[in-house]
Nucleic acid binder design. Structure first.
Lengths: 300, 300
DNA sequence: TCCAATCCATGCATATAAGCATATCAACCC
DNA sequence: GGGTTGATATGCTTATATGCATGGATTGGA
């Protein structure tokens, strides 16, 4: 750094200075404790420690209350200036957090990013042109705690207690394939007819197989010769008549060349969660986008 | 208070602001940690906490180092101002602690205050006319920790680890009475001759009796019909031929009307301690007085 | 291209500071 | 004068934050 400051001077405990300031302005340790939401002994000990740290007696302990020493009165002017700057900082930070301007990052799966978000973002851009939106398409759950994103669209509720999650609704998903592929495997009418069919897996951990078996299928790893983590890739394979894929119904049914497999079977339901970190409660910008997403995602 | 401040704004953790300042100026958490003598994770957590507290992202975590966000750059100006005030405060406090001007309070027993200190204080006043001295005569040991005094003259070493004590020397004390009183009890020549004599006790706890019995006396409570905590009162009683008193030799022998009882007996030795709190190490004023007291008290 | 250096994040053990309850004291009021 | 209120100081327990050690990641250079 070019600017060389005398750090030795700045190393004292700033919270103790704060305790000094509030105590001097309020007139007693107890009052300062009430203001700062801290116990009175804590304030007293902080001031004693500050006196030791500076080598200066700040207060004269006289009976009921405290009284500033001349030295303390002189030093009080400096902590008052610190307090003014702290105040200005806090106000500025609040203004920033409440400002609607700025950018926001939304994390979503590739299908949602490609098929659902564009319409919503378009609406947002009309309502709030000052907000710049960034879309983060991650197959793995993006880490909100690391602030890789501000808001995430997920199919599960996060476990981290520091995150705020809102369940939008349950989304129906079905199995889809081309009519060509279905005729090639004999136009299956029942679950049993699909025991030899080939499915496109969309994750590594066989969760699709387990999910289907849970509703009556009898599939093994042999039924999943192809795997991808990308829904768009999976969907392209389905369109190429390579196999059967699973997809949210309202997305799949935009595709005229694809038909539902076993359309009479009840759809599988997947929850849809909207997740944000706690900054949601302080940032007006994030709150606006969050609310719009919740409203629009609930429509489909 | 007349001045009503918006305290909600000032309540955020000032040490976190300090971490923010140093990190921004040094360019990395590690460098800031080295400057503040703290571990790098501590700085990182403090800044993360500050970001949560303010609802504003201050740094963009980018690879090796951090980079200020626009919001962070704006807020940095405020913490820089806080830092400047903190710096000024620290410099001013150092100047105050090193200033020779001001008052100092010395605690001593009444005999020392009356017989020893005046000459020393006179010398101090010549050397350091800017120092105002206050003498606190306490029978009980005054509490330095409560800053009732800055320096204390005591006959024992304090147990509190927060105090600094220096042993000056061992002071001889003897038994004294008027020639009139001694002749009235038969001019005692041996310890045994004093078994019926009357002594003026100077404390409540019979420590004088125990001390004398430890060197060969055989006294009981009956030998101590009069008690006072004040040495000057005791000495006046001795001068009034009421009984025998014990006193530091160099003080007692200024009094021509008083003679030593059993002058051939070796004197009782009491240690003389000079005690100060740790501010001794930071305050030039206290150091000056302490050193002068140590030097002068060692002369007698 | 690989190695070394540097920096940030995380888990765990520990030291530090905070809170609670209490004792003590001074001032005010009845 | 005694009781009451509100103040500070202290001991003890618990919560908090810090430090250390480690892992992961990126940059710069050989």
């Amino acid at each position: 750094m070019l600017i060389c400051m005398d750090w030795n001077k700045t190393k004292f405990d700033w919270n103790r200075a704060r305790a000094f300031l509030v105590t001097a302005q309020e007139g007693s340790l107890s009052a300062a404790g009430r203001v700062l939401n801290m116990a009175q002994p804590t304030i007293g000990r902080q001031i004693t420690a500050l006196e030791k740290e500076l080598g200066v007696i700040l207060f004269e302990r006289v009976g009921r209350g405290l009284q500033l020493t001349p030295n303390g009165a002189t030093l009080l002017e400096f902590v008052e200036r610190m307090g003014q700057s702290a105040n200005a900082l806090s106000i500025a930070a609040y203004g920033q957090s409440q400002s609607i301007e700025g950018s926001i990052t939304i994390s979503a799966s590739d299908t949602y990013a490609a098929n659902v978000l564009p319409a919503i973002i378009a609406k947002l851009h009309v309502q709030q042109p000052a907000i710049k939106v960034e879309i983060l398409t991650t197959n793995s759950a993006s880490n909100l705690l690391k602030r890789e994103a501000d808001i995430a669209i997920r199919s599960f509720c996060p476990t981290e207690p520091e995150l705020i999650a809102k369940k939008i609704r349950d989304v129906p998903a079905r199995l889809y394939a081309t009519a060509q592929y279905l005729s090639a495997i004999g136009n299956p009418k029942t679950i049993a007819d699909l025991s030899k069919a080939e499915f496109i897996a969309i994750d590594k951990h066989e969760s699709l197989m387990k999910g289907l078996n849970a509703v009556g299928f009898e599939l093994s790893a042999d039924n999943f010769p192809i795997m991808t983590e990308n829904f768009l890739v999976m969907w392209e394979m389905v369109k190429q008549s390579i196999g059967i894929g699973i997809l949210d119904s309202f997305i799949a049914e935009k595709e005229p060349t694809i038909v539902s497999v076993l359309p009479d079977m009840p759809p599988l339901m997947f929850p849809l969660w909207l997740v944000a970190h706690r900054e949601l409660n302080t940032s007006r910008r994030i709150r606006v986008v969050f609310d719009l997403l919740a409203k629009e995602l609930g429509k489909y």
